[in-house]
Amino acid sequence: MLTIIKNRLSRRVALAAIAVAAVSVSVLSVSGPAVAEDKKDLKVGIISGEDEDVWRVVTAEAAKKGLTIETVVFNDYTQPNEALERGEIDANAFQHLPYLENQIKTNGYKIVPVGYTGVWP
């Protein structure tokens, strides 16, 4: 049960964390090998800022289910997809589908969406 949260930012972060945790750590895109493997340790690329607060909750919830998530923080929106394509991370969670589709088309990435995550300004 949720309690009333006074701070608007805290409320947004809490709601986003709940939404992300509720979908059992679904992330927006993964590289080909990450889809095929049944991994217990994942490196997930995120954007600095509010995402870091949300993913602290996600990693804690995932750990309760035996999944270890290491977040890799980026400060530029092109870096997570590049790192994913190179195999430096297993997944990323930061973009909406039109952006991902454009990145795949423009750069020829072999990454695929696997779920939805919170996206906010």
Score class of each variant (00 low, 15 high):
M1C: 06
M1W: 05
L2Q: 11
T3I: 07
I4V: 08
I5Q: 04
N7W: 00
L9N: 08
L9C: 00
L9D: 05
S10W: 00
S10E: 13
R12I: 10
L15V: 01
A16L: 07
A16G: 15
A17Q: 06
I18R: 12
I18H: 04
A19R: 10
A22H: 11
V23F: 07
V23Y: 08
V25T: 04
L28S: 11
S29P: 00
S31T: 09
G32V: 06
P33A: 08
P33I: 05
P33F: 09
P33T: 09
E37F: 06
E37N: 13
D38H: 14
K39E: 02
K39L: 13
K40Q: 12
D41N: 15
L42Y: 15
G45Y: 03
I46R: 09
I46W: 02
I47C: 05
S48L: 04
G49N: 07
G49L: 05
E50R: 10
D51C: 08
V54N: 09
V54W: 04
W55H: 11
W55A: 02
V57I: 14
V58R: 10
T59D: 02
E61T: 12
A63V: 03
A63E: 15
K64E: 12
K64N: 13
G66S: 05
G66H: 04
T68E: 11
T68F: 03
T68A: 13
I69M: 11
E70G: 04
E70R: 15
T71P: 01
T71F: 04
T71N: 08
V72R: 14
V73D: 02
V73E: 03
F74S: 09
N75M: 01
N75T: 10
D76C: 08
D76F: 05
D76R: 14
Y77Q: 11
Y77E: 12
T78P: 00
P80C: 10
N81A: 14
L84Y: 02
E85K: 13
E85H: 11
R86A: 14
G87V: 03
E88L: 12
I89G: 03
D90T: 09
D90F: 08
A91N: 10
N92D: 14
N92Y: 14
A93N: 10
Q95T: 12
L100D: 01
E101H: 11
N102K: 14
T106C: 00
N107L: 01
N107C: 02
N107G: 01
Y109Q: 01
Y109P: 03
Y109W: 11
K110A: 08
I111S: 04
V112T: 14
P113V: 04
P113G: 05
G115M: 11
Y116Q: 13
G118K: 06
V119N: 08
W120N: 02
P121T: 09
P121L: 05
P121F: 06
